[in-house]
Design a protein around this nucleic acid. Structure first.
Lengths: 161, 161
DNA sequence: TCGAATTGCTCAGCCGGCTTACTAATTTCA
DNA sequence: TGAAATTAGTAAGCCGGCTGAGCAATTCGA
Protein backbone atom coordinates (compact mmCIF):
# COMPACT_ATOMS: atom_id res chain seq x y z
CA UNK A 1 0.00 0.00 0.00
CA UNK A 2 1.24 3.41 -1.01
CA UNK A 3 1.37 6.03 1.72
CA UNK A 4 0.89 8.73 -0.91
CA UNK A 5 4.03 10.67 -0.08
CA UNK A 6 3.92 14.28 -1.29
CA UNK A 7 5.55 14.69 -4.70
CA UNK A 8 7.80 17.54 -5.74
CA UNK A 9 5.09 20.17 -5.68
CA UNK A 10 4.25 23.01 -3.32
CA UNK A 11 1.83 20.98 -1.32
CA UNK A 12 -0.75 23.53 -0.27
CA UNK A 13 -1.39 24.82 -3.79
CA UNK A 14 -1.67 21.75 -5.97
CA UNK A 15 -5.31 21.21 -5.39
CA UNK A 16 -6.60 24.71 -5.73
CA UNK A 17 -8.47 25.43 -8.95
CA UNK A 18 -5.79 27.70 -10.39
CA UNK A 19 -3.47 24.70 -10.57
CA UNK A 20 -5.97 22.36 -12.16
CA UNK A 21 -5.61 21.16 -15.73
CA UNK A 22 -7.75 23.27 -18.02
CA UNK A 23 -10.12 20.45 -18.83
CA UNK A 24 -10.86 19.89 -15.19
CA UNK A 25 -11.57 23.58 -14.80
CA UNK A 26 -13.86 23.36 -17.81
CA UNK A 27 -15.98 20.53 -16.50
CA UNK A 28 -16.14 21.95 -12.99
CA UNK A 29 -17.19 25.35 -14.27
CA UNK A 30 -19.82 23.72 -16.45
CA UNK A 31 -21.22 21.71 -13.57
CA UNK A 32 -21.34 24.66 -11.18
CA UNK A 33 -23.03 26.87 -13.76
CA UNK A 34 -25.68 24.29 -14.55
CA UNK A 35 -26.27 23.88 -10.87
CA UNK A 36 -26.85 27.63 -10.52
CA UNK A 37 -29.70 27.37 -13.03
CA UNK A 38 -31.34 24.32 -11.63
CA UNK A 39 -33.41 26.12 -9.02
CA UNK A 40 -34.91 28.57 -11.49
CA UNK A 41 -35.54 25.82 -14.03
CA UNK A 42 -37.03 23.49 -11.47
CA UNK A 43 -39.53 26.12 -10.44
CA UNK A 44 -40.74 26.10 -14.05
CA UNK A 45 -40.75 22.30 -14.21
CA UNK A 46 -37.83 22.25 -16.64
CA UNK A 47 -34.32 20.86 -16.84
CA UNK A 48 -31.42 22.16 -18.87
CA UNK A 49 -31.68 19.35 -21.38
CA UNK A 50 -35.37 20.10 -21.85
CA UNK A 51 -34.74 23.81 -22.21
CA UNK A 52 -32.39 23.14 -25.11
CA UNK A 53 -35.05 21.11 -26.88
CA UNK A 54 -37.67 23.81 -26.42
CA UNK A 55 -35.21 26.25 -27.91
CA UNK A 56 -34.43 24.02 -30.86
CA UNK A 57 -38.14 23.79 -31.62
CA UNK A 58 -38.02 27.50 -32.57
CA UNK A 59 -37.23 26.12 -35.99
CA UNK A 60 -40.55 24.28 -36.09
CA UNK A 61 -41.63 20.69 -35.80
CA UNK A 62 -38.92 18.17 -36.51
CA UNK A 63 -37.79 14.61 -35.85
CA UNK A 64 -36.02 13.20 -32.82
CA UNK A 65 -32.85 12.39 -34.69
CA UNK A 66 -32.58 15.92 -35.98
CA UNK A 67 -33.06 17.32 -32.49
CA UNK A 68 -30.30 15.00 -31.30
CA UNK A 69 -27.92 16.16 -34.01
CA UNK A 70 -28.48 19.82 -33.23
CA UNK A 71 -28.13 19.27 -29.50
CA UNK A 72 -24.89 17.30 -30.08
CA UNK A 73 -26.34 14.36 -28.23
CA UNK A 74 -26.96 10.69 -29.08
CA UNK A 75 -30.40 9.69 -30.28
CA UNK A 76 -31.02 7.53 -27.21
CA UNK A 77 -30.33 10.46 -24.90
CA UNK A 78 -32.75 12.62 -26.87
CA UNK A 79 -35.36 9.89 -26.71
CA UNK A 80 -35.35 9.95 -22.92
CA UNK A 81 -35.26 13.74 -22.73
CA UNK A 82 -38.35 13.80 -24.93
CA UNK A 83 -39.99 11.17 -22.71
CA UNK A 84 -39.69 13.60 -19.81
CA UNK A 85 -40.82 16.62 -21.79
CA UNK A 86 -43.79 14.67 -23.07
CA UNK A 87 -44.65 13.44 -19.60
CA UNK A 88 -44.60 17.06 -18.42
CA UNK A 89 -46.81 18.06 -21.32
CA UNK A 90 -44.33 20.45 -22.96
CA UNK A 91 -43.95 18.57 -26.25
CA UNK A 92 -46.01 16.13 -28.29
CA UNK A 93 -44.70 13.23 -30.37
CA UNK A 94 -46.86 12.33 -33.35
CA UNK A 95 -46.05 9.48 -35.74
CA UNK A 96 -45.19 10.84 -39.16
CA UNK A 97 -47.69 9.39 -41.68
CA UNK A 98 -45.27 10.05 -44.53
CA UNK A 99 -42.47 8.03 -42.89
CA UNK A 100 -43.70 5.68 -40.27
CA UNK A 101 -40.26 5.36 -38.66
CA UNK A 102 -40.29 9.03 -37.69
CA UNK A 103 -41.98 10.84 -34.86
CA UNK A 104 -42.74 14.52 -35.41
CA UNK A 105 -41.96 16.49 -32.28
CA UNK A 106 -43.72 19.77 -31.59
CA UNK A 107 -44.09 22.15 -28.67
CA UNK A 108 -47.50 22.10 -27.08
CA UNK A 109 -49.02 25.47 -26.29
CA UNK A 110 -48.03 24.92 -22.66
CA UNK A 111 -44.54 24.16 -23.90
CA UNK A 112 -44.41 27.38 -25.91
CA UNK A 113 -45.53 29.27 -22.85
CA UNK A 114 -42.96 27.80 -20.47
CA UNK A 115 -40.27 28.41 -23.06
CA UNK A 116 -41.26 32.07 -23.19
CA UNK A 117 -40.78 32.32 -19.47
CA UNK A 118 -37.56 30.31 -19.37
CA UNK A 119 -35.92 31.99 -22.29
CA UNK A 120 -33.77 34.44 -20.36
CA UNK A 121 -32.59 32.14 -17.59
CA UNK A 122 -29.41 30.97 -19.27
CA UNK A 123 -28.29 34.47 -20.16
CA UNK A 124 -29.28 36.17 -16.94
CA UNK A 125 -27.87 33.66 -14.50
CA UNK A 126 -24.53 33.22 -16.22
CA UNK A 127 -21.79 34.65 -13.99
CA UNK A 128 -19.95 37.81 -14.98
CA UNK A 129 -16.57 37.26 -16.53
CA UNK A 130 -14.05 39.92 -17.43
CA UNK A 131 -13.48 38.86 -21.01
CA UNK A 132 -16.64 37.14 -22.16
CA UNK A 133 -15.74 37.41 -25.83
CA UNK A 134 -12.45 35.57 -25.33
CA UNK A 135 -14.26 32.87 -23.40
CA UNK A 136 -16.79 32.34 -26.18
CA UNK A 137 -14.05 32.28 -28.80
CA UNK A 138 -12.12 29.64 -26.92
CA UNK A 139 -15.19 27.50 -26.26
CA UNK A 140 -16.14 27.67 -29.93
CA UNK A 141 -12.66 26.54 -30.88
CA UNK A 142 -12.93 23.64 -28.49
CA UNK A 143 -16.37 22.59 -29.70
CA UNK A 144 -15.27 22.79 -33.32
CA UNK A 145 -12.11 20.79 -32.72
CA UNK A 146 -13.73 18.12 -30.59
CA UNK A 147 -16.90 17.64 -32.58
CA UNK A 148 -15.12 17.36 -35.89
CA UNK A 149 -13.74 14.07 -34.64
CA UNK A 150 -17.06 12.92 -33.22
CA UNK A 151 -19.53 14.00 -35.89
CA UNK A 152 -18.11 14.42 -39.38
CA UNK A 153 -20.57 17.24 -40.13
CA UNK A 154 -23.71 18.51 -38.51
CA UNK A 155 -26.03 19.24 -41.42
CA UNK A 156 -28.24 22.35 -41.39
CA UNK A 157 -31.89 22.17 -40.47
CA UNK A 158 -33.90 20.04 -42.86
CA UNK A 159 -35.34 22.12 -45.66
CA UNK A 160 -33.37 25.17 -44.70
CA UNK A 161 -30.53 26.45 -46.89
CA UNK B 1 -50.80 22.18 -30.45
CA UNK B 2 -48.21 24.73 -31.49
CA UNK B 3 -46.90 24.45 -35.02
CA UNK B 4 -43.64 26.03 -33.90
CA UNK B 5 -43.69 28.86 -36.43
CA UNK B 6 -40.26 30.41 -37.00
CA UNK B 7 -39.68 33.41 -34.75
CA UNK B 8 -38.02 36.67 -35.69
CA UNK B 9 -34.56 35.21 -36.08
CA UNK B 10 -32.38 34.38 -39.07
CA UNK B 11 -33.54 30.82 -39.23
CA UNK B 12 -30.48 29.00 -40.53
CA UNK B 13 -28.12 30.41 -37.91
CA UNK B 14 -29.94 30.18 -34.61
CA UNK B 15 -28.88 26.68 -33.86
CA UNK B 16 -25.26 26.87 -34.76
CA UNK B 17 -22.86 26.92 -31.82
CA UNK B 18 -21.79 30.52 -32.34
CA UNK B 19 -25.31 31.63 -31.51
CA UNK B 20 -25.68 29.49 -28.41
CA UNK B 21 -25.84 30.99 -24.95
CA UNK B 22 -22.42 30.87 -23.36
CA UNK B 23 -23.49 28.35 -20.73
CA UNK B 24 -24.65 25.95 -23.37
CA UNK B 25 -21.31 26.32 -25.14
CA UNK B 26 -19.59 25.66 -21.85
CA UNK B 27 -21.37 22.40 -21.11
CA UNK B 28 -21.10 21.16 -24.67
CA UNK B 29 -17.39 21.91 -24.79
CA UNK B 30 -16.93 20.16 -21.47
CA UNK B 31 -18.79 17.08 -22.62
CA UNK B 32 -16.92 16.85 -25.91
CA UNK B 33 -13.54 17.27 -24.22
CA UNK B 34 -14.25 14.59 -21.64
CA UNK B 35 -15.36 12.32 -24.44
CA UNK B 36 -12.06 12.86 -26.21
CA UNK B 37 -10.25 11.50 -23.17
CA UNK B 38 -12.44 8.53 -22.54
CA UNK B 39 -10.70 6.18 -24.96
CA UNK B 40 -7.27 6.80 -23.50
CA UNK B 41 -8.56 6.54 -19.95
CA UNK B 42 -10.55 3.41 -20.67
CA UNK B 43 -7.45 1.70 -21.99
CA UNK B 44 -5.92 2.26 -18.57
CA UNK B 45 -9.10 1.19 -16.81
CA UNK B 46 -9.78 4.67 -15.52
CA UNK B 47 -12.51 7.28 -15.74
CA UNK B 48 -12.18 11.00 -15.40
CA UNK B 49 -13.74 11.04 -11.95
CA UNK B 50 -11.28 8.40 -10.81
CA UNK B 51 -8.34 10.24 -12.32
CA UNK B 52 -9.17 13.29 -10.24
CA UNK B 53 -9.17 11.23 -7.07
CA UNK B 54 -5.82 9.65 -7.89
CA UNK B 55 -4.46 13.15 -8.41
CA UNK B 56 -5.89 14.43 -5.13
CA UNK B 57 -4.15 11.59 -3.33
CA UNK B 58 -0.83 13.25 -4.20
CA UNK B 59 -1.36 15.00 -0.91
CA UNK B 60 -1.37 11.71 0.95
CA UNK B 61 -3.98 9.58 2.62
CA UNK B 62 -7.15 11.38 3.53
CA UNK B 63 -10.85 10.93 4.20
CA UNK B 64 -13.70 10.62 1.75
CA UNK B 65 -15.34 13.86 2.76
CA UNK B 66 -12.13 15.77 2.23
CA UNK B 67 -11.71 14.24 -1.21
CA UNK B 68 -15.26 15.29 -2.00
CA UNK B 69 -14.63 18.86 -0.89
CA UNK B 70 -11.51 19.18 -3.00
CA UNK B 71 -13.17 17.65 -6.03
CA UNK B 72 -16.16 19.99 -5.59
CA UNK B 73 -18.49 17.04 -5.45
CA UNK B 74 -21.03 15.77 -2.92
CA UNK B 75 -19.96 13.10 -0.47
CA UNK B 76 -22.37 10.54 -1.96
CA UNK B 77 -20.85 11.02 -5.40
CA UNK B 78 -17.37 10.53 -4.02
CA UNK B 79 -18.52 7.42 -2.20
CA UNK B 80 -19.53 5.75 -5.44
CA UNK B 81 -16.44 6.91 -7.29
CA UNK B 82 -14.33 5.33 -4.55
CA UNK B 83 -16.41 2.15 -4.80
CA UNK B 84 -15.32 1.83 -8.41
CA UNK B 85 -11.70 2.73 -7.72
CA UNK B 86 -11.61 0.22 -4.90
CA UNK B 87 -13.22 -2.46 -7.06
CA UNK B 88 -10.51 -1.80 -9.66
CA UNK B 89 -7.85 -2.11 -6.98
CA UNK B 90 -6.48 1.42 -7.23
CA UNK B 91 -7.39 2.73 -3.85
CA UNK B 92 -7.92 1.15 -0.44
CA UNK B 93 -10.39 2.26 2.19
CA UNK B 94 -9.33 1.50 5.74
CA UNK B 95 -11.43 2.37 8.78
CA UNK B 96 -9.74 5.05 10.84
CA UNK B 97 -9.11 3.68 14.34
CA UNK B 98 -8.89 7.21 15.73
CA UNK B 99 -12.33 8.17 14.43
CA UNK B 100 -14.45 5.21 13.61
CA UNK B 101 -16.77 7.22 11.40
CA UNK B 102 -13.95 7.92 8.94
CA UNK B 103 -12.42 5.79 6.23
CA UNK B 104 -8.83 6.57 5.33
CA UNK B 105 -8.38 6.44 1.57
CA UNK B 106 -4.99 5.68 0.06
CA UNK B 107 -3.62 4.80 -3.35
CA UNK B 108 -2.53 1.20 -3.69
CA UNK B 109 0.78 0.63 -5.43
CA UNK B 110 -1.16 -0.34 -8.55
CA UNK B 111 -3.07 2.91 -8.19
CA UNK B 112 0.14 4.92 -7.95
CA UNK B 113 1.40 3.17 -11.05
CA UNK B 114 -1.67 3.80 -13.18
CA UNK B 115 -1.69 7.42 -12.02
CA UNK B 116 1.88 7.76 -13.26
CA UNK B 117 0.82 6.56 -16.66
CA UNK B 118 -2.37 8.62 -16.79
CA UNK B 119 -0.89 11.82 -15.54
CA UNK B 120 -0.37 13.51 -18.88
CA UNK B 121 -3.62 12.56 -20.55
CA UNK B 122 -5.59 15.62 -19.54
CA UNK B 123 -2.92 18.05 -20.64
CA UNK B 124 -1.94 16.30 -23.85
CA UNK B 125 -5.40 15.63 -25.22
CA UNK B 126 -6.81 19.06 -24.53
CA UNK B 127 -7.49 20.82 -27.83
CA UNK B 128 -5.42 23.80 -28.91
CA UNK B 129 -7.01 27.16 -28.34
CA UNK B 130 -5.67 30.52 -29.47
CA UNK B 131 -5.82 32.25 -26.10
CA UNK B 132 -5.48 29.56 -23.47
CA UNK B 133 -4.64 32.03 -20.73
CA UNK B 134 -7.84 34.00 -21.26
CA UNK B 135 -9.81 30.77 -21.20
CA UNK B 136 -8.30 29.73 -17.88
CA UNK B 137 -8.88 33.16 -16.41
CA UNK B 138 -12.53 33.14 -17.39
CA UNK B 139 -13.07 29.60 -16.12
CA UNK B 140 -11.46 30.49 -12.80
CA UNK B 141 -13.75 33.48 -12.48
CA UNK B 142 -16.75 31.27 -13.15
CA UNK B 143 -15.70 28.60 -10.67
CA UNK B 144 -15.01 31.20 -8.00
CA UNK B 145 -18.33 32.96 -8.54
CA UNK B 146 -20.42 29.82 -8.70
CA UNK B 147 -18.80 27.89 -5.88
CA UNK B 148 -18.95 30.77 -3.46
CA UNK B 149 -22.71 30.34 -3.48
CA UNK B 150 -22.54 26.57 -3.22
CA UNK B 151 -19.76 26.02 -0.72
CA UNK B 152 -19.06 28.88 1.67
CA UNK B 153 -15.37 28.04 1.76
CA UNK B 154 -13.31 25.09 0.68
CA UNK B 155 -10.80 24.65 3.50
CA UNK B 156 -7.19 23.77 2.78
CA UNK B 157 -5.91 20.24 3.09
CA UNK B 158 -6.15 18.94 6.64
CA UNK B 159 -2.97 19.69 8.54
CA UNK B 160 -1.58 21.89 5.82
CA UNK B 161 -1.27 25.65 6.27
C1' DT C 1 -22.74 13.66 32.27
C1' DC C 2 -26.03 12.96 28.97
C1' DG C 3 -29.06 14.61 25.39
C1' DA C 4 -28.63 17.31 21.10
C1' DA C 5 -26.16 18.62 17.23
C1' DT C 6 -22.78 17.58 13.97
C1' DT C 7 -19.99 14.68 11.08
C1' DG C 8 -18.75 10.64 8.00
C1' DC C 9 -20.59 7.52 5.22
C1' DT C 10 -24.10 4.86 2.58
C1' DC C 11 -28.56 3.80 0.14
C1' DA C 12 -32.30 4.75 -3.01
C1' DG C 13 -33.83 7.10 -6.72
C1' DC C 14 -33.74 10.81 -10.28
C1' DC C 15 -31.49 13.17 -14.49
C1' DG C 16 -28.64 13.01 -18.47
C1' DG C 17 -24.59 11.61 -20.72
C1' DC C 18 -22.78 7.21 -23.02
C1' DT C 19 -22.45 2.23 -25.58
C1' DT C 20 -24.36 -1.90 -27.34
C1' DA C 21 -28.04 -4.18 -29.21
C1' DC C 22 -32.55 -4.65 -30.91
C1' DT C 23 -37.12 -3.80 -33.95
C1' DA C 24 -39.42 -1.74 -37.66
C1' DA C 25 -39.59 0.92 -41.74
C1' DT C 26 -37.55 2.77 -45.76
C1' DT C 27 -34.27 3.13 -49.43
C1' DT C 28 -30.86 1.28 -52.58
C1' DC C 29 -29.35 -1.40 -56.13
C1' DA C 30 -28.06 -5.80 -58.46
C1' DT D 1 -38.42 -7.51 -57.50
C1' DG D 2 -36.24 -8.71 -53.53
C1' DA D 3 -32.21 -8.93 -50.53
C1' DA D 4 -29.08 -5.79 -48.27
C1' DA D 5 -28.07 -1.52 -46.24
C1' DT D 6 -29.54 2.41 -43.94
C1' DT D 7 -32.40 5.13 -40.88
C1' DA D 8 -35.65 6.19 -36.76
C1' DG D 9 -36.59 5.00 -32.53
C1' DT D 10 -36.27 2.27 -28.11
C1' DA D 11 -34.32 -0.70 -24.26
C1' DA D 12 -30.88 -2.10 -21.00
C1' DG D 13 -27.10 -1.11 -18.45
C1' DC D 14 -23.03 1.75 -17.06
C1' DC D 15 -20.93 6.27 -15.21
C1' DG D 16 -21.31 10.35 -12.53
C1' DG D 17 -23.74 14.30 -11.13
C1' DC D 18 -27.63 15.41 -7.71
C1' DT D 19 -31.27 15.24 -3.45
C1' DG D 20 -33.36 13.18 0.52
C1' DA D 21 -33.10 9.98 4.13
C1' DG D 22 -30.93 7.22 7.45
C1' DC D 23 -27.31 5.03 10.63
C1' DA D 24 -23.35 5.21 13.57
C1' DA D 25 -19.91 7.77 15.83
C1' DT D 26 -18.21 11.87 17.73
C1' DT D 27 -18.40 16.42 19.75
C1' DC D 28 -20.71 20.12 22.14
C1' DG D 29 -22.87 22.34 25.78
C1' DA D 30 -26.34 23.11 29.48
Amino acid sequence: MDAGEPLSVPADDVHRPDHWPTGRLLSTASRLVEHAWSDALERLGLTHAGLIVLHLLDLGDTSQSELARHARVEAQTMSRTLDRLERAGWVARVPDPADRRRHVVSRTSAGAEVWQRAQRIEAELFPQVTDAAALRTALLEIVAAAESRRWPAVPPHRGVR
